[in-house]
Design a binder for these strands. Structure first.
Lengths: 204, 204, 204, 204
DNA sequence: AATGAATGAGGATTCATTCAT
DNA sequence: TATGAATGAATCCTCATTCAT
């Protein structure tokens, strides 16, 4: 009776997802065939369909996992150093060559969100959490200019992250330190410029 | 219709490109079949291959045209109102529902740039022009903080544009006015904050 | 039917080759579509590509098999009756209506060898073996005129076989017995004519 | 009124045939597209169809011309030196690198004859003329062994020519002199061997 | 007479998915 | 549970041929 443990099942599932992530980051969702994933994962074609309903399901799972992981990391970093520092850390991590495959996966997800409402929702959900958190933080931090919509400010900084990620995968010769310093200066200018109050103190 | 005028040929070519752009914006590059383009353009399958060597060639042409058009518009707007105003105008135009297909096309191009060096180069070229122009502008405008790398500043503002475009296609409920106002405030804060000088005067 | 025996796989592969041989002999390599082979073999289109990388690969396999089979038969016949008798037997077999499809296949292979270096090599290899064997035999048989290059003699007799095959597929009304008798007389004339010695005795 | 001379028409037609011959010898009948011929000939696609009803018609014309030319040459050579010498001359000419494209064309024609009754007839007609002439010659030349069917003898020598042509296009390293010497020796052996009479004197 | 733009059926090949074992 | 053989619709592209000019 081949009933196996849930851990085994989960590990098997993750094995497929890891293989898929590798393929997707390398070739994109559409240039990756199921056979590619089968080959990369070492799991038979038939078995893949017992863990996922199809290719779209794998893509969904990959995108969901992608955003979950990012959210977790951001949250953890925020708890340690405050949101601003955590944000700048995230920006800095974009420069790390090791994250390159991850960034590529993200860009693929954006494109896939164009045509799949389901993926679009996943991506939007992945963005909404951090944005709401950032907006809440800004709202409660007095040093941020009151005349600016906290939500818009959050969107701007998320846009900066997204744009940096994009430029990084497009162009190897980016000076990430310089970029992050500029963003940091922007934060400082914004918070200091209008209200002349002290650096925001984290409350979260 | 033998020996037809060059204008005719160009119009025919554009007819294919327009059809392709429509399809690509709707379904993405890879979910669009040649038959889709043939149907949408009203041109026979065989004829398409007299204007383009293949699907990849059409994608290339689309991406190239996309960036050319954007560069032209930015340049024209810059000549009229100065770079900062032109940039904010571009941001504002992202909110226009009519540009939505264009933005979607742009995101597709980013994803395609992941796996095609040729497309990557096109996209990079499309970004490099504006970035260099912006960096040059910043360099020659005294109100910008001297301690910031002009190139990095340019990258940040381009990132904001890219991120806004992305968020716009992902999410219908964006308050673009608010976003642009925030970005404008950021520019003001950066230029006023450090050097206390007047708004940058355009020289271009 | 997972993990099927090697025999099963080989049989399946041969099934495709047999169907292809039938089609190729009937319509030629280029007038035969993959669909034709699929239909004739009763195997699905996709499956064919698990056994062969493409149409060219099938052609290669057919040509290789063709020459392998012929070489085997010639060798077997040589072992039994000596090379000259075996050669005349081969000539006689050309007259058998059953070998007609095979001959047609051979002519197709010659034409294909014009444009495919790979096929050319296969065909040449298929001819080189018998030729070397024949030359060696002639060299070691004293009744053959010493002033003739054994290799050239071998080539002449192979040419006779090739030409007969060609004439046979072009023309139904060939008197093969008469042809073979003439060739036999030629062998006799050559071996008897110059050296006045007895019929060559086989040594192989 | 664009009525032009017949010479002009014939030259134009030949221009197409020459281009086609070049393409066919290089790529084979089936790998040569009409566009290839159009390009090679410098004549527009539409016009080709005013000289030929289609591709098959061009192939027919090429094959017919091929055999006509060969027949003419053989006839001319025969008139000068007698049939045997003319035949050996023809064999020798096979070694000339310049005739290579012609030989390739011939092999293509053989393959095409497999599937087109019309081409088969043309090729057969091309062979039948020389064969009948040779048989007639043999019949009337007393030095040829009376017990051999003149028609079969003719076929054997034509086969030798065909096989040599084939081997030549398949294999660059053929010693044609040696081959021709062997064939000459074969003729001598056959004619001298049985009846001990003088060299045949030409009557034609 | 001459052009070459236009057609669309047909070709080789791929791929997500299923299912017998 | 696990396999991988099998399917066949769909994809990109080519090509002989036509015909408006």
């Amino acid at each position: 009776m081949p009933k196996v443990s849930d851990d085994y099942l989960a590990a098997r599932r993750q094995q497929i997802l890891d293989a898929a992530a590798t393929c997707f980051a390398r070739d994109g969702f559409h240039r990756t065939s199921m056979q590619d994933i089968v080959r990369e994962s070492g799991i038979s074609a038939g078995l893949v369909y017992r863990y996922f309903t199809g290719k779209d399901d794998i893509i969904s799972a990959i995108v969901r996992q992608w955003h979950d992981l990012r959210a977790q990391r951001l949250e953890a970093a925020t708890d340690h150093n405050g949101l601003v520092a955590a944000y700048l850390d995230v920006l800095r991590s974009v420069g790390d060559p090791q994250t390159r495959p991850d960034l590529r996966l993200g860009v693929q997800a954006w494109a896939e969100a164009m045509r799949s409402p389901h993926i679009r929702e996943l991506v939007r959900d992945g963005v909404d959490g951090p944005r709401a958190a950032a907006a809440a933080f800004i709202r409660r931090t007095p040093s941020w200019p009151a005349d600016l919509d906290p939500d818009a400010v959050a969107r701007v900084f998320i846009a900066i992250y997204q744009g940096l990620a994009l430029q990084t995968v497009l162009d190897d010769d980016i000076d990430h330190d310089s970029f992050v310093r500029t963003v940091a200066a922007t934060v400082t200018a914004l918070t200091a410029g209008s209200s002349r109050r002290a650096e925001p103190t984290e409350s979260r």
